[in-house]
Design a protein around this nucleic acid. Structure first.
Lengths: 307, 307
DNA sequence: ATGCTTCATGAGTACGATTCATGGCATGGA
DNA sequence: TCCATGCCATGAATCGTACTCATGAAGCAT
């Protein structure tokens, strides 16, 4: 009755996907985690959707939210619509041209050896004629510019005009230590880290800067007992053994936190995060093999990057 | 095979609606018009979609674009998905609470008397318990602030913090005249308007500024023979009779242009456009009757506003 | 009460979608 | 052949909006 073309822009929004996910998982926070957004984003999105439609869709009373009657109907529509769309997407994937030839990929040591390796198998299987080799190093841009690498995944920003940058994900860091260690050193606030052994990837302790910048001035600890370990995995083991406090990418210590081998310290303080991006030379970014890998990596859900 | 949750963000984009519309109308320009965007926007959107999927969806060879095989399949998926979503939207509309009480709407004379009136009937029918009255005037903000009006549709910008502004549509203007008039005055470039009778809504000729600002300096005409007519409809009739050149909102002269009673002049020059917005007092914007009308107006497709 | 979740909200920001201003490439008259 | 004209592509600039950040309020435990 309202629009001439029977086309209603109302329900054609990213909000809908959020609503759909939210209905599935039943919690704003969980939904946010799965979509790689903040809880606030989900809340805003739902507020907007309800405002747009003019109908309450969520029943927020009490614990564990439920859908209203209208919400349930909308959910069913989403279920159907997204199913067909996702099927279409899947279908399109099959028609992508396969990549051939050789692709030389570079990545940081920590990221490459863990997350990247864990997720490359499906891509390799889908492109049997593609030869990939990996170079894990801290110097990535040099080889990229010298054409020793075709594509690089790095977390330091390279604002070079010759490079194409595609954002990939954000890496968050946590401070943690063994439970016994926390007790022994009575760690309650950041300042308690003073005169307490801390594990660092470098000898100077610059590694801890990404944490220190997030600490308010009054609570600044004076770190002076650094234990340098130039390998993340080794550093984690050291922390588990109670050798010192640890600052590490969250994804790297998920299991240890889960098992209780490590406990997170000062959850209120969020260290600076790294933004991982894919870098390629602009002139080569158009090549099929490069685009395929870029798309594949970007299609990985944020959860898979441990954020 | 790729994403863990079977949720592929690829096809969850506004781009899709564009693609769907494009496939229906078969032309970038027409699609843009229908969606109220520029041709460029549609082009960008399709480029991005094809890049994202990695599959060519459009066949641009030759005249009149066609879909590729993959494009056709995607189109069918869209057809189905959007159908269920739009049905759901329609369903939600029925559950919107009806508005009651009285709503005093203000609008500019030209807009209110034509477009607005032509589109209010469905809204009135859907809200039988709502009494609406219209005030068409050029002074709208005053009454709005004095609470003589509840909601106002205006094209001049009011950056008042107490007012909530919701963008509605853009009004484009055209310069036109009767075919015979063009011949008689040999109108080919804007400068030819010098010493040629021009119709103006005001006596000073300020009406023509929105055209003059769009004309490059070298081609500036010296308008000096103004015929003032303080009513748009009358002005159009005058133009049809060959009394002078006309500057008018495009929507107002659509029929005349269609029938050939008027011809558009200098299509390359695009006069400054008016941006119509809905203004309401923030404190009252939350009321159901106001929100309903706002949503209704915004749901009207851009085509219906003649742009 | 105190803490611990979970969601809401307002202000500020960053990114992506859109526009603007072009340029290329076809087609159809003169 | 030559210019008009219509259609789409493209790069840079701009604008809006969906996000984050930093809170606050409300439910449920202890």
């Amino acid at each position: 009755m309202s629009t001439i073309h029977g086309m209603d822009p109302l329900l054609d929004l990213p909000q809908l996907r959020t609503f759909y996910t939210l209905a599935q998982v039943g919690s704003f926070t969980a939904c946010a985690r799965r979509l790689g957004r903040t809880q606030s984003a989900v809340s805003h999105a739902m507020a907007k959707l309800e405002d747009l439609t003019g109908v309450p869709l969520l029943d927020r009373r009490g614990r564990g939210l439920r859908l209203t009657e209208e919400g349930r109907r909308l959910y069913q529509a989403c279920e159907q619509a997204f199913a067909t769309l996702d099927a279409a997407a899947e279908d399109l994937k099959r028609h992508q041209t396969q990549a051939r030839g050789r692709l030389r990929v570079g990545a940081t040591v920590e990221f490459g050896s863990s997350i990247l390796m864990r997720h490359m198998q499906p891509f390799l299987a889908a492109n049997p004629d593609l030869e990939i080799d990996f170079t894990l190093s801290h110097d990535l841009v040099g080889p990229l510019l010298r054409d020793d690498l075709d594509l690089v995944i790095d977390c330091v920003d390279h604002p070079l005009p010759a490079l194409k940058k595609s954002p990939l994900f954000r890496e968050t860091y946590v401070v943690a230590c063994a439970p016994a260690f926390r007790k022994a050193h009575r760690l309650r606030v950041p300042a308690d880290l003073s005169r307490c052994p801390v594990l660092s990837l470098d000898k100077g302790g610059a590694w801890w800067n990404r944490f220190l910048v997030a600490v308010p001035d009054r609570d600044q600890p004076h770190l002076d007992r650094f234990i340098a370990v130039n390998h993340v995995r080794a550093m984690i083991h050291a922390a588990v053994e109670g050798m010192g406090a640890l600052l590490a990418p969250r994804y790297a210590v998920l299991e240890e936190l889960e098992r209780g081998d490590l406990v997170a310290l000062f959850p209120a303080i969020r260290p600076a995060e790294d933004r991982f991006s894919i870098y390629q030379k602009k002139v080569k970014a158009g090549q099929e093999k490069q685009r395929l890998l870029t798309r594949y990596l970007q299609s990985l859900s944020p959860e898979e990057f441990g954020s």
